[in-house]
Amino acid sequence: MTQLPPPTRTGRPQSATADEYDDGPFTFRPATKDGHNATVAIQGPSGSGKTWTGLSIASGLAEGERFAVIDTERGAAALYVNDLGATFDTLPMRRYDPRDLQKALAAAAQAGYPVVMVDSLSHFWKGTDGTLDQVEKAKSKYGGNKFAGWKDGTPIQNEMIEALMSYPGHVVATMRSYVDWVLESGQPVNKGMRVEQRRGIEFEFGVAAEMDKGNRLRFIKSRCPSFRGLQLDQPNGARDIAKPYLDWLRDGAKEVDPTVWIDAANAPDATPDSLLALYREVEAASALATPLLHPETGKPISLGDLIKERGTALKAATS
């Protein structure tokens, strides 16, 4: 019997360009608030005033400009259009694949909306085709093991949140919540309100608050010092939240226009070196996940991936 040689392990080939983008230097820079946008989460049970308050905050953040609402609540936001004194456009959604939210965010960014509101983010967790559905569908690949299904579900969820947090404008999101009852020694115990999204998601936002059915708002997390420990009865979102938040963000900060990066990524005279430098600049601004529509395919892509794709192609064409 012929003795076969031992197998040789080889790694997946990678281009030098990919290494250049993925293995950048660790560079510390002076801390600034330049280019930071407001990110606000409002959670609460049905009837607590989340949609109205979220719209009021979005209106204040938009400062008179038309903003966008990604609507999963069967047109609830549009009911307030004549009462709010603000102008906004809505995108109704009926299926809630987190990747579809990325597409919607990319479309809103392409249209130049200064503020996008998601009403509500809970559907992209437990609604039709939401993250929980994605996990359920994926488990068949792993012999029915639902825990293993999270290998597919977790990246989808994480990429959605990255796109939301990297939107090139301000973000407001509402989320449903419910009373979390837990059995302890055979007795139901009220553990407080729990949001209908992945546990801990509220801490991704710069400001997070919960509302009760009396329309009282309590801040549960805030990077803005003005809101820490604060409670508001029937808040005016534009006056009580948007204005002080914007004032704090802009104190000593410069505006950053992400369209400058996008134009540079698509510039006809771009070179591999200029695109690599652009990638490092966007990376330093924590904006690689900025959602866009691909200039050729029209499909959603992140700003970082667009720069990398074009830089890699140009380098290959000149080598």
Results as ranks from 00 to 15, higher is better:
Leu164Met: 09
Glu202Leu: 02
Val189Cys: 13
Gly169Asn: 06
Glu281Gly: 07
Thr17Ser: 13
Lys137Glu: 04
Thr53Val: 04
Gly153Asn: 01
Gln197Gly: 09
Pro272Thr: 13
Gly237Lys: 02
Ile57Gly: 03
Gly229Met: 07
Tyr113Gly: 03
Asn82Ile: 01
Asp22Cys: 11
Thr10Pro: 11
Tyr245Trp: 05
Ala242Val: 09
Thr131Tyr: 01
Glu309Gln: 15
Ala108Gly: 08
Asn236Tyr: 01
Ala173Ser: 07
Gly186Val: 14
Asp23Tyr: 13
Pro268His: 01
Ser319Met: 07
Tyr21Trp: 12
Asp97Arg: 04
Asp247Ser: 06
Asp273Ala: 15
Asp180Ser: 09
Pro225Thr: 02
Ser319Glu: 15
Arg95Met: 06
Glu204Met: 04
His36Leu: 09
Ala109Leu: 03
Pro291Asn: 02
Thr128His: 10
Ala287Gln: 14
Arg250Trp: 06
Ser120Met: 04
Val115Tyr: 00
Phe124Met: 02
Lys299His: 15
Val81Met: 11
Leu230Asp: 05
Gly143Val: 03
Phe26Trp: 15
Asn190Ser: 10
Leu101His: 03
Lys308Thr: 07
Leu275Lys: 13
Leu249Lys: 03
Leu84Ala: 09
Pro272Cys: 12
Thr297Lys: 10
Gly186Ser: 12
Glu255Lys: 10
Ile57Lys: 08
Leu276Cys: 14
Met193Asn: 05
Tyr245Ala: 03
Ala277Glu: 14
Ile70His: 02
Glu255Tyr: 10
Lys315Ala: 15
Asp240Leu: 08
Ala316Met: 12
Trp261Met: 09
Ser185Asp: 15
Gly24Asn: 10
Lys50Ala: 01
Pro5Met: 09
Ile42Ala: 03
Arg310Val: 10
Leu246Pro: 02
Asp263Phe: 13
Asn236Glu: 08
Leu232Val: 10
Thr2Lys: 11
Ala106Asn: 11
Thr87Asp: 15
Gly112Cys: 00
Met117Ala: 06
